[in-house]
């Protein structure tokens, strides 16, 4: 009887476990193997040891892509988290229009990535784009955005700031978790809004902030692909050449699957490192994480 029940539970979990094995564990294992080989995707892989990694060390494009990705992530994750936090605090109160405000704040997140990249390519057009037309109307400096090496990454960060719907949802759920009377009693004790926020809201929200930032680091690594592919192809002068685009071109344009796999492994290692660093950063901040 007991074992029959276990078999049924296992059957419920079977597709998930099978998928996790077939689509994640197995590809990860193959990556590990392929990264030590020379492989064009068709003929048999040739074992070359650490050669792929050694070649990457002296490949300038690899460093450019990695550093661009890290610059993008550090800017985007920080600003996106702050934006989501600000929005969540602003839209937390249940008022008549809050439902509509929340829905509209989420709306840009719904736009398909390709359409989103195209409309921003138009918005950011240095000559005729609405953004620069507006900036010029106010006599503000109008940078050349995606065609200026200094402004290209900030431009992509800017467009990512409009897609913070998921972060908003996560933090709203977190805010609803905070008992009302905790805040009320703090107010009775004479704490002002800022003190309540830093002493009660922020610490109690920290598990959700960890979840959000960690998820955003992972997503930010991959989310640079579509803008880079559709808007800039890595340009100008490799200013938006990010790691995913390098992986794609290494493997599918140059058919160097071994080297592509080596880059993937490094990206994965860097992600894990960033996630752990974030975790310990929050930990040292003295926040509980359960």
């Amino acid at each position: 009887m007991i074992s029959a029940r276990r078999a049924q539970i296992f059957a419920l979990l079977a597709p998930y476990l099978m998928g996790a094995f077939l689509l994640v564990a197995l590809p990860a294992g193959i990556s590990l193997y392929v990264s030590f080989t020379r492989y064009d995707g068709v003929s048999t892989p040739v074992w070359v040891g650490l050669q792929n990694f050694q070649l990457l060390r002296i490949e300038p494009l690899f460093w450019v892509a990695l550093i661009n990705s890290l610059i993008y992530i550090s800017q985007a994750v920080l600003l996106r988290t702050l934006a989501a936090l600000g929005l969540a605090l602003l839209y937390n109160q249940p008022r008549r229009a809050t439902g509509l405000y929340r829905a509209i704040a989420y709306l840009p997140t719904v736009i398909p990535d390709t359409a989103y990249a195209l409309v921003w390519l138009w918005i950011l057009n240095p000559l005729y784009g609405p953004l620069n037309l507006a900036l010029r109307a106010f006599n503000l400096p109008a940078p050349a955005w995606l065609t200026d090496t200094r402004w290209a990454i900030p431009a992509i960060v800017l467009m990512s700031l409009f897609q913070v719907g998921e972060g908003l949802v996560i933090l709203l759920a977190g805010l609803r978790h905070i008992p009302r009377d905790l805040k009320d009693s703090a107010r009775v004790d004479g704490a002002n809004a800022l003190q309540t926020f830093s002493a009660i809201t922020l610490p109690l929200l920290s598990p959700w902030l960890i979840l959000l930032t960690v998820r955003d680091v992972v997503l930010s690594f991959q989310n640079t692909f579509t803008p880079a592919y559709i808007m800039t192809r890595g340009g100008p002068y490799y200013a938006t050449y990010f790691a995913p685009l390098l992986i794609y071109e290494t493997a599918f344009d140059r058919l160097r699957f071994g080297q592509g796999a080596a880059i993937m492994l490094i990206v994965f290692a860097v992600t894990i490192f960033l996630v752990l660093a974030l975790y310990f950063f929050f930990e040292s901040w003295g926040f509980d994480d359960d």
Binding site: V24, S31, G41, V218, I247, G260, L265, V267, I272
Partner: peptide
């Protein structure tokens, strides 16, 4: 699993499905 970026898998997933 949530922590693994798709970009760290897509090549070999492609090879596998192919």
């Amino acid at each position: 699993l949530q922590m693994i970026p798709v970009t760290a898998l897509w090549l070999t997933r492609f090879l596998l499905l192919a």
